[in-house]
Amino acid sequence: MEKIMILNGSPRAVRSNSRRYAEIFSKKSKCKTEYFNILKTNHHNLCSKMAEFRDVLLVFPLYADGIPVTLLDFLKTLELNPPKSKPVVSVLINCGFLEHGQNDTAVCMIKLFCKKNGYRFGSVLKIGSGEAILDSPFKILVKGKIKKLASSICNSRYRALHTTMPIPAKVFVKAAEKYWVNYGAKNGVTKEEMRTMKIEE
């Protein structure tokens, strides 16, 4: 049975939504998976370990319209230290915006890396509303798409997938406000405080 290497490129790896997505992937995958957080200290280990896998799944959030520095720095190390055999690279990306298409530039960056460095690009799952969707009734949509992603990678029938909350943008704006107000309340911060226009004052 082929193995899939899952690399979490989220800066908050241990507490990240990416970790939760990776856990769902592992449960849904019929191929064996091994999970690793990308840390500043383990780049070289991950690069050499990669040779043991036919497929790699990069799981990460959209950061400032692109790939997070955590992942960017790892890819730069990987470019200089390629594994003996190069796996197929797939992507599971999430952004906090409703539109899964806002992930497109980051996905293109991974495709560009693959092209420049001789890796085949495999499947992609782009998730919109990814900050909150796992704690909403729409979690089932994400689980379904992750199952399809896992199947596509396991069977080497690579494909492009996407999902988000199936709600109008205006409803999403209201739902996001509720989500963040509750988040702030846990820290004792009010909506009015969160709405401050001041920066470092």
């Binding site: 963040w180 401050t196 920066i199």
Partner: peptide, 8 residues
Amino acid sequence: CWTKTPGK
């Protein structure tokens, strides 16, 4: 910077 010390 959004939910603990907004703006900082």
